[in-house]
Computed example of a mutant assay.
Amino acid sequence: MRFGVLGTGHWATVTQAAALATHPSATLAGVWGRSPDKVADMASRYGVPGHTDLDALLADVDAVAIAVPPDVQADLAVRAAKAGKHLLLDKPLALDPAAADEVVAAADAAGVATVVFFTNRFVPSIESFLTANAELGGWYAAHGTMYTSIFQPGNPYSGSVWRKQHGGLWDLGPHALSVILPLLGPVVDLSAAEGPRDTAHLLLRHEGGAASTLSLTLDAAPDATSFGFSYFGEHGATTLPEWDATQVEAFGNAVNALLDVVSTGNRHACDAAFGASVVRILSAAERARTSSTIVTV
């Protein structure tokens, strides 16, 4: 399958394009971006055509892998879907539920496959953990902490405008929800609070009565970073395992997942519809955080 990468930033260059360039069942057929200089640099690095005209790229590929800010991604995804291209999307799918729903509707109408790259879900150790414990059942509580510190000199994401504007809720929230929802189920309602260093603290109530808490920030003090998820249920307590893959390998697994959807017609658990459900939760959390009320999802 011929893939085009939409985006020329760090993630597009060192993860998506790198995975596609070495994938045994995919071909990196071109790159697209808004900056001619960045397009030229990335195209030269991988020896593929570079485009600033999206329609020209779409004419040369079967699928697109998108690595642009979420407020840009939704429009590009809709255009690609209408052109009949399969979609390997990034998270969050959009910053607005209506925009996310437009992606789902466009993909469904065109009959194209969709997979959203919730990174953890394509790491074998984590996906095996979630599958086994979802089958076990009985989980009634979970707590997750994601404290990172990306705005330090030398960090490849320190200049990310959308991350500075929307913070850990929107950048880390999708990661957190992707490993909470499979075990505790859909979110019914939630409350949220702000803390120092742009922390977002969420209390979520799930269908069936389970509850979870999340604490997120991209701007933790450099010596106060933390990552961990704990789960509590009728069969005991457990924690999310460590990764057994690199980011490039995980993206390669996402490519495999999209290829499988195309060949079998079976929807993937992390499809655009799941991505849209995560956007609805994050949007509700944003409203809850600013209004200090419990918000229904």
Results as ranks from 00 to 15, higher is better:
residue 218 L to E: 13
residue 266 N to K: 14
residue 159 G to C: 08
residue 92 P to N: 07
residue 206 H to W: 04
residue 109 A to Y: 00
residue 74 A to S: 15
residue 200 A to S: 15
residue 168 G to M: 06
residue 228 G to E: 00
residue 234 E to A: 15
residue 136 L to M: 12
residue 147 Y to W: 09
residue 125 S to V: 04
residue 243 W to R: 15
residue 191 S to C: 06
residue 193 A to G: 14
residue 236 G to I: 09
residue 51 H to C: 13
residue 238 T to W: 03
residue 225 T to P: 02
residue 126 I to T: 08
residue 68 V to T: 14
residue 101 D to C: 04
residue 256 N to W: 02
residue 242 E to P: 00
residue 93 L to D: 07
residue 268 H to A: 13
residue 259 L to A: 06
residue 151 F to I: 05
residue 187 V to Y: 04
residue 267 R to G: 09
residue 210 A to T: 06
residue 163 R to M: 15
residue 144 G to A: 13
residue 19 A to F: 06
residue 49 P to L: 10
residue 6 L to A: 13
residue 33 G to K: 09
residue 27 T to I: 13
residue 166 H to N: 14
residue 205 R to Y: 03
residue 120 N to L: 15
residue 183 L to H: 02
residue 84 G to T: 09
residue 152 Q to L: 15
residue 232 F to V: 14
residue 6 L to F: 06
residue 72 V to T: 10
residue 173 G to M: 02
residue 145 T to A: 12
residue 246 T to W: 03
residue 53 D to W: 02
residue 195 G to F: 07
residue 267 R to D: 15
residue 150 I to M: 14
residue 295 V to K: 10
residue 77 A to K: 10
residue 167 G to A: 08
residue 165 Q to C: 07
residue 205 R to T: 12
residue 266 N to H: 14
residue 47 G to Q: 12
residue 125 S to K: 01
residue 240 L to S: 04
residue 240 L to I: 06
residue 15 T to W: 00
residue 221 A to F: 11
residue 81 A to M: 07
residue 164 K to E: 13
residue 200 A to F: 10
residue 28 L to C: 12
residue 68 V to M: 01
residue 218 L to N: 10
residue 94 A to H: 01
residue 190 L to R: 01
residue 70 P to W: 01
residue 40 A to F: 07
residue 26 A to T: 09
residue 181 L to Y: 00
residue 46 Y to C: 11
residue 283 S to K: 11
residue 180 I to E: 13
residue 205 R to K: 12
residue 76 L to T: 09
residue 94 A to L: 01
residue 141 A to Y: 08
residue 143 H to V: 11
residue 116 V to A: 03
residue 117 F to I: 02
residue 277 S to M: 08
residue 148 T to N: 10
residue 181 L to T: 15
residue 223 D to M: 12
residue 86 H to I: 09
residue 177 L to D: 09
residue 148 T to Q: 14
residue 67 A to L: 04
residue 77 A to G: 13
residue 63 A to C: 12
residue 36 P to Y: 06
residue 122 F to A: 08
residue 13 T to E: 14
residue 190 L to V: 05
residue 97 P to D: 02
residue 173 G to C: 04
residue 140 Y to G: 15
residue 158 S to L: 01
residue 280 R to N: 03
residue 287 R to F: 04
residue 69 P to N: 08
residue 151 F to C: 09
residue 235 H to I: 08
residue 197 R to S: 15
residue 107 A to R: 03
residue 275 G to Q: 09
residue 254 A to Q: 00
residue 246 T to H: 03
residue 239 T to Y: 07
residue 130 L to D: 00
residue 31 V to H: 09
residue 198 D to A: 15
residue 249 E to N: 07
residue 140 Y to L: 11
residue 224 A to W: 01
residue 172 L to A: 07
residue 245 A to V: 13
residue 270 C to K: 06
residue 284 A to L: 05
residue 18 A to P: 05
residue 271 D to T: 11
residue 179 V to S: 04
residue 11 W to A: 14
residue 263 S to W: 01
residue 137 G to Q: 05
residue 129 F to K: 00
